[in-house]
Design a protein around this nucleic acid. Sequence first.
DNA 1: CAGCGTGACTGAAGCGCTTCAGAATGTCCA
DNA 2: TGGACATTCTGAAGCGCTTCAGTCACGCTG
Lengths: 377, 377
Amino acid sequence: MTRRRRPTLDDVADAVGVSRATVSNAYNRPDQLSARLRDQVLRVAAELGYAGPDPTARSLATSRTGAIAVLLDTSLSTAFSDPALSLTLDALARVVDPRGHALLLLPGGAHGGPPAERVLGAQADIAVAYSLADGVAALDAVRTRGLPLVVIDQPLVPGAARVGCQDRLGAALAARHLRELGHRRFGIFAAHSHVRPGGGALTAAEAAGAAFRDTRERLAGYLGELDSCEVVLHEAAGLSAESALDGAFALLGAVPRPTAVLCMSDQLALAVLAAARQLGIAVPGEVSVAGFDDSPPASWSSPPLTTVRQDLVAKGRIAGELVLSLLDGGSGAVPTAGSVSAAGSMSAAGSVSAAGSASASAEVPVSLVVRGSTGPA
Amino acid sequence: MTRRRRPTLDDVADAVGVSRATVSNAYNRPDQLSARLRDQVLRVAAELGYAGPDPTARSLATSRTGAIAVLLDTSLSTAFSDPALSLTLDALARVVDPRGHALLLLPGGAHGGPPAERVLGAQADIAVAYSLADGVAALDAVRTRGLPLVVIDQPLVPGAARVGCQDRLGAALAARHLRELGHRRFGIFAAHSHVRPGGGALTAAEAAGAAFRDTRERLAGYLGELDSCEVVLHEAAGLSAESALDGAFALLGAVPRPTAVLCMSDQLALAVLAAARQLGIAVPGEVSVAGFDDSPPASWSSPPLTTVRQDLVAKGRIAGELVLSLLDGGSGAVPTAGSVSAAGSMSAAGSVSAAGSASASAEVPVSLVVRGSTGPA
DNA sequence: CAGCGTGACTGAAGCGCTTCAGAATGTCCA
DNA sequence: TGGACATTCTGAAGCGCTTCAGTCACGCTG
């Protein structure tokens, strides 16, 4: 069992009787040696149990690791409890995988982002930050390391590339829809956004200081359509399903009860649906509920959820293309319209802007999907 | 913008006027130099914009990367659509994080596991395989590289450590429960297991050849309790929610319809619940449904799901401890009873066995959780 | 005062690979 | 026949860091 030291390139070279460079070429540049010799090298390598060039040594020599650091806001289970993340990362992974890049997950710690130390020590060629709170230390660490950066659903950082969605517009669409249905008493349900650490009721002014850009934007979108309406704001205590449920009960327990609840994610909306069922409140009879994202579970719920659709797959794909472009030394130019539309979205390609040569921002379009969870007041 | 080459250890050393070794020590072994000098080194490093030792170079020198390769069966979105994975990986990550290890995700390709090439090129100290089909190439690649290996919910590989759950017992508990309720006509719903690529009805003999150990074990557990009962077997076409729903319709459409459906995961059971609702079939009035895993959504469904509970967090935690132990040169000894019970499970610590000095196997215990989805025939 | 333990720092040998500028040999055509 | 090219392979210089065996100076002890 105590195997000898693993064989290295040199061992193979010695065994074959060629130079180290030749063995390296056998793996990396087959055109640099005769097919015959190459076969022999590979055969001897197999005999010796040589598994191919050591990834770390190769990385040092080439200064590319083949990994993408994914900076998350929270723990893995919390982060992945929202299907939106899996969908987006999956699409991202599919784009970068053919180029040999894998995802290195850096879950968030207590302060809403991975510890700087983890970022500094991560073996990665580039960082992707997903919906981090503004100003977390992890982003500074990315900069000090000089890593290229792509941010998703976050404010644009100078020098980085960004992809997001039309948050404000989407929120406005949902609010307008409910308003047109005659609703005048609204609940707004925000995800945990560090305003009120324990969660709870919020004033609009407080919410405007949320640590997350999408929270701020969506809020603005809602409120812009709700002039002269009663509005109750609630922030969830955490990102877990339990805290969402707590918040849902609080919102539905408000007196007088809102006739419509605008939720900043489908997860929150589904929690409101669950709470309403438990309380015996009819949806959409007594209360209408709208979500945001149009993640898959939105269409399976009962009633199926009215929600703001954003193309999560396209978002991930664009992020992936930005990653590749930055890796190629590009300046984070926004992927061409061709690739965006190839993303399968039927709507217009969304707004896009390149601010200077060093940063770029893309947004996927949104649209309202009306299903069964909303009805007349 | 065109910054000079990033500073290295040597640059800092030169700037301070000390040797390279001293700067290295400033970062890695503070006790090796005077506090005064160390401060100076760190200060100069900051001025120079040096972000600390390059992770790759450090890895090459120390031969530790600080990453754990996680081998998945499917794409990310599919894999993470089951909360069981997030929960387990989260628990695993929490155990290894304090030691500076992050997770490198290697999603599965067409053949039910990551391509060997990805495994060979992954920068990782150890591999964790999660519920891979038997005999995928990725596992061979792990061996050729000589990477330590921990498998979760898979057959034990020689030289690896393993953690799983008492699949057979759990399945038997569920089947017995329904049988005792008077059911005699059963449906069994298996996840995609490569027997019938397109999904569909299966004979017991076919199912016994499933590519996944847990499928085989759970099946055996069910069937062992169902003597002289009618049994219809169905395999889902894929792992997506859509294919689960299709399978659920097929099972509920069988004539005569089963009065009880045993599902090999909660995801499948929830799909059956959804299908039943759409078909107007009362649960548990007309059909009883049981799941497996007791993932969080099991308790939120309506009716809440009767299911086999396994402590997913404990499973992840044990896996994490096995990882650390293997990394420490341990032989994959099963974590002590202390750590297992610390996992928060109230039941007995499950069965554990160490086969030889080079491999070990742990199983988390299971128990039946009876909720609202099962009732008398 | 010789001898010695100690704290602080350094030199240099790797870690395993890539890559680039040649060297060696063979080929082709004028 | 001889020079211009290809083709195939090699030597050696890194990539940026860790680490181990010292070296050096200093203060202490007997």
